[in-house]
Structure formats: structure tokens, C-alpha cells
């Protein structure tokens, strides 16, 4: 069974970079992309064209998104009994203290800011893979969903 990761990210450049970095880190990962908050929620709730969407093992969530921003998405995930156990990692360019505090307040599992340098970014993606997808023991959420 492939590892399913949902990337919520509106910048195509960042999406591709993340795909490239995961390809280096773990070829077995299936990376799904939602381009804004509304689509992310539809994907998670299997609404509309996402009726057959898998339940992700990990969510990578940007904060600044069109239509519904990452903070609202995070709040909805953590308020939803069916979704709250999915590790949700904030991956954003913001280094603002207010965003960090707010995200953890909303039960984000981890807050990471995107490094400027490519190699550092690749290293970060590798460590996300190593920690959240390999080392961390997660509940068998798929059976619940």
C-alpha cells in the first residue's frame, strides 16, 4: 500500500519542488495536491470530484492560500473527529512568531518554514519523510475512515 501525502499548496513551483524532493527521499510516496483550502477540505471529506480520494497518512499545509487559508483548514481538520488524528505539518515561508503560536494553538503537529536554499529544502523533506512517515507510529486511521 503506497504512502499517501496531501500537499496543500497554491504555488505550482513549490508543488513541483516538493514532488522532486520527495522523489529523492522516498519513491513510494503518492503526493496528492490541493491548490487551496476549500479543495483540501473537499479532498479530506471526499466531496465532489474527490469522492474516491484516499485518506492521507500526512498533510503538508501551507498557511497563505486562496479562498480558505491554512489556519481555517487546520481548525476544521482538528475539529473533525474523523480527521484530527492525521498528522498535519505546517510548511510555509512565514517565520512570524504569531503564525507559529497560532498554528500550535490550533493543534498543528509541527511547524516548519521553507528554507530558501534548495539543498536545505531537500534535506527538510527527507527528514519529514524519515520522521513522520517512517519512524512515527501513527494510528491505523484508514480503518477508522
Amino acid at each position: 500500500m503506497p504512502t499517501e501525502v496531501l500537499l496543500v499548496e497554491d504555488s505550482p513551483g513549490d508543488v513541483r519542488l516538493t514532488q522532486e524532493a520527495f522523489r529523492e527521499a522516498n519513491i513510494a510516496i503518492k503526493l496528492h495536491v490541493a491548490e487551496d483550502g476549500v479543495e483540501a477540505i473537499e479532498f479530506l471529506r471526499r466531496e465532489g470530484c474527490h469522492a474516491n480520494a484516499p485518506r492521507p497518512d500526512l498533510i503538508l499545509l501551507d498557511l497563505n492560500l486562496p479562498r480558505m487559508d491554512g489556519r481555517e483548514v487546520l481548525a476544521l481538520i482538528k475539529a473533525d473527529d474523523g480527521l484530527k488524528s492525521i498528522p498535519t505539518v505546517i510548511l510555509t515561508t512565514s517565520e512570524a512568531e504569531a503564525d507559529i503560536v497560532k498554528s500550535y494553538h490550533l493543534q498543528a503537529n509541527c511547524y516548519l518554514s521553507k528554507p530558501v536554499d534548495l539543498e536545505v529544502f531537500e534535506g527538510l523533506v527527507k527528514s519529514i519523510n524519515d520522521f513522520w512517515l517512517k519512524r512515527a507510529k501513527l494510528p491505523k486511521g484508514r480503518e477508522l475512515g
Binding site: 504555488s11 521553507k114 536554499d117 534548495l118
Partner: peptide
């Protein structure tokens, strides 16, 4: 820094 990160990352790639 944002667009520059793209330029820099992709030229490195």
C-alpha cells in the same frame, strides 16, 4: 525572497 527561491531552486535543479 519568494520568487527568488523559485529561480534559485530551479536553476540549481
Amino acid at each position: 525572497q519568494e520568487p527568488l527561491r523559485m529561480v534559485s531552486s530551479y536553476t540549481q535543479l
